[in-house]
Write a protein that binds this DNA or RNA. Structure first.
Length: 494
RNA sequence: GCCCCCAUCGUCUAGAGGCCUAGGACGCCACCCUUUCAAGGUGGAGAUCAGGGGUUCGAAUCCCCUUGGGGGCACCA
């Protein structure tokens, strides 16, 4: 049987790191075994679901390169796959029919308990140090009793009878798991009083309808799995196999959350993390090749992936390691590709007035040799060479003076460097032409070259850490270098 | 509270009874390279494999208990 897996996000927030990781593992498994990767939107929480979040999630998955084989229609694109629609609120009749069947078979029943009543039950159980569970007040109402409540205008929610016994399954990553249905919290609601279906119900109806063979999802669903298995059986469907992935954790080892970590993929994209790095990093959270390889492309991961080799323990999200991987991947990008990816970040710097104009692609290309290996993220470009794209830089008088120098020496040094640089012709304004005379200058005056270079560096960039000085001077151009050196001199002498 | 799951350097991990005086990577430290910063190279610190019992000639690897951590117990997903 060919494998069918799915990612079923809920459009109640922007694409979350955890969702992306689950999607990735589903994708990897599907591609590795030549199966089908399905995208289904679980939008039954009508209050919190929005089309904007839906859009965000789809865009994010696509950005990561996780293309789905079957999924909903979006922005004019028709739905793909034989099981459309792929948006749960458009599949309501299916759930209604399934609910009808369960009701008819008395495997489910209407419950008229009010939220307040349920709440009171829960509080009482809590006070008695008992596990919260539905007490079964409506489990055995006679038809007359039901009619009476309906006549009173009450509308029942539908509860599924969990019965008794032990539910066992063999999880692909966790192995054999057994849970006594007594610990499920009693009969659970599958359809709200307003007629809209709930997650535990829709997920089963749809996984069955769509022929899902492996349910690959987060470990937080492990305890819910028996409910799903019971439902699959009650509906007369085959039970799929399950693979519960270890959770991604905050530094304090709790489930990764917005409160304690950055969880939105958007934020990582906005900071200049690239898809190759994110995918590579996420794949290595909870899985490894078993070898010492770790810089892996999506294709390479697909080739090596084995859902059965996924770990059981949760993994702390380590941003430092992600940044390192990002740098590794940035260094591997072809020039044109890197320029294309850099451009939006430079544009954003212009928009935010961090720099004053947009450099040309050619200018960016000429900078690549010195910035490519220095970028931890694409967003760091302005920080690295933003001084090139502003009219003037702010220079701090104190910073201009090298540690071993005093103000007088600095004035002398910058002034002499200015004249030396000016004497290098415009046409010969190359790094190889600038370095020798400046070194000779330092030697003639008995200065350490590094001190002279540092003074010039700060004078023309306003900072102490920059790409190599001579490349920086060339990038600025002769006139601007002279201008900035003069300006630095006036700062020092004023 | 009840149920379930998990447990190797700070972090991500290798390890499927002898190859482990536990390997790699991130981070950290030092040195090299070097005009600064990175990148790169070399080296180092860092885990008595949570603890305790077994099983075995032999255990990080198998079993049990304890401890610790996490997740789940909604008319959320």
């Amino acid at each position: 049987m060919t494998s069918r897996v799915r990612i079923a996000p809920s459009p109640t927030g922007p694409l979350h790191i955890g969702t992306a990781r689950t999607a990735l593992f589903n994708f990897l498994h599907a591609r590795h075994v030549g199966g089908t990767f399905i995208l289904r939107l679980e939008d039954t929480d009508v209050v919190r679901s929005t089309v904007e979040f839906e859009r965000d999630i789809l865009d994010g998955l696509r950005w990561l390169g996780l293309d789905w084989d079957e999924g909903p229609e979006v922005a004019g694109e028709p739905a793909r796959g034989p099981h459309a629609p792929y948006r749960q609120m458009e599949r309501l009749p299916l759930y209604a029919a399934a609910a009808e069947r369960l009701l008819g078979d008395d495997m489910a029943y209407p419950c008229y308990c009010t939220p307040d009543l349920l709440d009171a039950d829960r509080k009482a159980q809590e006070a008695a140090k008992e596990a919260p569970r539905y007490v079964g007040r409506c489990a055995h109402l006679t038809p007359d009793e039901r009619l009476a409540r309906e006549a009173d205008g009450l509308r029942g929610a539908l509860r599924f009878r969990v019965g008794e016994g032990i539910v066992a399954f063999d999880d692909i990553v966790r192995g054999h798991v057994e849970i006594d249905v007594r610990n499920l919290g009693g009969d659970f609601i599958i359809v709200r009083a307003d007629g809209t279906p709930l997650y535990h119900f829709t997920v089963v109806v749809d996984d069955a309808a769509m022929g899902i063979t492996e349910v690959i999802r987060g470990e937080d669903h492990l305890s819910n799995t028996p409910k799903h298995i019971l439902l699959f059986r009650a509906l007369g469907h085959d039970v799929p196999r399950f693979a519960h992935l270890p959770l991604i954790l905050n530094p304090d080892r709790t489930k990764m959350s917005k409160r304690k970590s950055q969880t939105a993929i958007d934020d990582y994209i906005a900071q200049g993390f690239i898809r190759e790095a994110l995918v590579n990093y996420l794949a290595l959270l909870g899985w490894s090749t078993g070898t010492e390889e770790e810089i892996l492309s999506l294709d390479a991961i697909v080739e090596r992936f084995d859902i059965g080799a996924v770990h059981k323990g949760g993994a702390v999200f380590d941003r430092e390691r992600l940044e390192w991987l990002n740098g590794q991947w940035i260094r591997r990008l072809p020039a044109d590709d890197l320029i294309d990816r850099l451009r939006p970040f430079v544009e954003a710097d212009v928009a935010a007035a961090r720099i004053e104009w947009m450099p040309s692609d050619d200018e960016l290309r000429s900078l690549l040799p010195v910035i490519q290996e220095r970028l931890p993220t694409l967003g760091a470009v302005g920080d690295l060479v933003g001084f090139l794209w502003v009219r003037d830089v702010d220079v701090d008088a104190a910073m201009l003076v090298p540690k071993r120098w005093d103000v007088a020496t600095t004035v002398e040094g910058i002034s002499a460097a200015r004249d030396t640089i000016e004497s290098v012709g415009d046409v010969a304004f190359e790094a190889e032409e600038l370095e020798p005379p400046l070194r000779a200058l330092a030697e003639a005056r008995g200065w350490k070259a590094g001190d002279l270079f540092m003074a010039v560096r700060v004078a023309v960039t306003g900072r102490t850490a920059t790409p190599p000085l001579f490349d920086t001077l060339v990038a600025l151009g002769r006139d601007r270098v002279i201008e900035r050196l003069d300006r630095a001199l006036s700062v020092l002498t004023s």
